[in-house]
Amino acid sequence: MKNRSAFLLLLPGVLAICLFLFFPLLQTIWPTLGGSGYSHFLHSGYNRNVLGRTLLIAVITTALALGLGLPLALWIARQKASVKSLLSVVILFPILTNAVVRNFTWIIILGKDGVLNKVLLGLHLTQHPVTLLYTNAAIVIGSVYLFLPIMVTSLIGSVDELNIEVEEAAAVLGAKPWTTLTKVIIPQLTTGILTGSILVFAGAMTAYTTPQLLGGNRHLVMSTLIYQQAMTLGDWNQASVVAVVLIIMTVIVMGLMRLVTRWLDRRPANA
């Protein structure tokens, strides 16, 4: 009886996921199996470039988001409650603002007649406008801008759980602020750092809007390649292949990260 109620409550959700997610995914993956799609994809130097670019952008974005986000998260988490709430809202606001808007800001800044070039020319640091937009660097900057708040949010949660007396103990025992950060604070934040990194890495690897707006047509990544293959070139099979490769990459990355988390959790310190 009880099981029947549970079954009925779960059924709509299970059906929805199976019919609307797994079924279409199978429809996409099935035709690519057995054909030459994958070997064709991997044999193309152009495609390998796109794959490499996608991974590189995701790695650099994650590292930068972590490097910039950690100090900010530490600082925000240690403010008094009122200031902290306010700053958390300031961090949340970009997350909830449309990605087009957030990327658009960097078109204005990085463009040929953009704000940054004006500053560089005004300071005579350069004679001619520098190409900043439609580069890999532009995609990285845009991605960091897009995902930094997410990193900060997950780190703040982790910092909040720290016992401040542990850091005081380190200081009393002679640890300088830098030592306290690297030997005491960061080792305790591994869970938050990993969570944040997974979110940022997966986000940066699969984002569409940023590479589309800031990378242009010559700096494709996997997600923009899918769109181009399907809608511009009409090669649906190849688009499916790219999609499957992107899924596999995401799964591998998630799996690896989870493995690392589990390895770290073997240490009973987090119990």
Partner: peptide, 13 residues
């Protein structure tokens, strides 16, 4: 040297 109320041991060591 200091002994804290919460002991403040380094959980990762």
């Amino acid at each position: 040297g200091m002994v804290f109320q919460s002991y403040a041991l380094f959980p990762h060591l």
